[in-house]
C-alpha cells in the first residue's frame, strides 16, 4: 500500500440498472500518476464502473471516493476529466468545436470561466485548431472524437477517465491522442481507460483491471504486447519502472475460474 491518497477509490460498489445487477462489490483504486486499463468483454461492466465512479449513474451499495472525497459538492470536479463513449453527432442545433470544448471548462463554482484561449489551446493539442469554428455535426468520427478528448484535456485534469477512446478511430487520431495522454501522464495525471485493445497504450500502462460479469477478476500487470500486433507506438519511452510481476500473472482466464 502506498501512503498517498488514491485519486479514485471504489469500495465494494454495486450498481443496479433496470433491475439488473451490473456491478457486484467492485473495489479498485487508482494512485496519482497511474495509468490503468479497464478490460473485459462487452457487457462486463467497464463503462458502468467508469460512469458510477463519476456519479453519472447511482451506486446501489458501497462508496466512491474521488481524491478522498465522496461524490457530490465536496468532489474536486475541476481536477477530473472525462471522455464519454462517442455517440453519433446528432442533427440538432449546430455546435462548433470551440463551443463544445468551452463546455469542458465548466464546473461548480466555475460557471462562467469558459476562456476561449484555453479551449483553443486544447483543440490545438489535438490538431483541431483550424476546425474550431466548424460544427461537430459536420465532422468525421475521428475528428469528433478529438474534440471530445480536447473537452476533457482543457480542464488539465489530475484524473482522466476515458471510455473506449480509440474505438472506431483512425491511426493518426490514436497517435495524437496517445501523445497527449503520455504528456499528461508525465506531469502526474492518473488515467483510467476502458479499452478493447491495449496496443496503443502498451508502453504507458501500469496496471490492468479485468471485469467479468460485473466482478473484478484480475487487478495487476497489463497483458503483454502481442508481437503480431506490435504497433507503431512502442517507441514511447518508459517514464517509470517496469511492473514487478512480468511472468505468470497474466493468464486472465485461469484467474477468473478460481472463484
Amino acid at each position: 500500500m502506498t501512503t498517498t491518497e488514491p485519486v479514485l477509490r471504489t469500495e465494494a460498489i454495486d450498481v443496479v440498472l433496470g433491475g439488473l445487477r451490473i456491478l457486484h462489490g467492485v473495489s479498485f483504486q487508482v494512485q496519482p500518476g497511474e495509468v490503468v486499463a479497464l478490460l473485459g468483454a462487452n457487457g462486463s461492466g467497464k463503462s458502468t464502473l467508469v460512469r458510477a465512479s463519476l456519479g453519472i449513474i447511482p451506486v446501489a451499495a458501497g462508496r466512491v471516493r474521488l481524491f478522498g472525497e465522496p461524490l457530490g459538492r465536496a468532489t474536486p470536479w475541476p481536477r477530473i476529466g472525462y471522455v464519454p463513449q462517442r455517440k453519433p453527432a446528432h442533427t440538432g442545433v449546430p455546435a462548433t468545436a470551440l463551443e463544445v470544448v468551452r463546455a469542458g471548462l465548466l464546473s461548480p463554482g466555475h460557471w462562467r470561466r469558459a476562456s476561449p484561449e484555453r479551449a483553443m489551446a486544447a483543440l490545438e493539442r489535438m490538431g483541431m485548431a483550424d476546425r474550431a469554428r466548424q460544427p461537430v455535426q459536420e465532422m468525421s468520427g475521428g475528428q469528433h472524437q478529438r474534440v471530445l478528448i480536447a473537452r476533457a484535456l482543457v480542464r488539465e485534469p489530475d484524473l482522466l477517465l476515458l471510455d473506449e477512446p480509440t474505438t472506431g478511430i483512425d491511426l493518426g487520431t490514436i497517435d495524437a491522442f496517445v501523445d497527449a495522454i503520455d504528456a499528461m501522464r508525465r506531469t502526474g495525471t492518473a488515467v483510467v481507460a476502458v479499452l478493447h485493445e491495449t496496443e496503443a497504450f502498451q508502453a504507458m500502462l501500469d496496471r490492468a483491471v479485468v471485469l467479468r460479469h460485473g466482478r473484478v477478476v484480475h487487478d495487476g500487470p497489463p497483458p503483454p504486447a502481442r508481437t503480431e500486433h506490435a504497433g507503431p507506438f512502442h517507441e514511447h519511452t518508459h517514464g517509470h519502472p517496469a511492473p514487478e510481476e512480468t511472468t505468470g500473472a497474466l493468464e486472465f482466464d485461469l484467474i477468473g475460474d478460481d472463484e
Binding site: 456519479g55 453519472i56 472525462y82 463546455a103 464546473s107
Partner: peptide, 22 residues
C-alpha cells in the same frame, strides 16, 4: 445569463453530470 451551463447540459447531459454540474 445561464447560457454556458444550459448549453452544456443540453448538448451532453452525461458529460455535464461528470463535470459536477447540477
Amino acid at each position: 445569463g445561464l447560457r454556458p451551463l444550459l448549453f452544456a447540459v443540453s448538448h451532453d447531459e452525461e458529460f455535464a453530470r461528470a463535470s459536477g454540474l447540477p
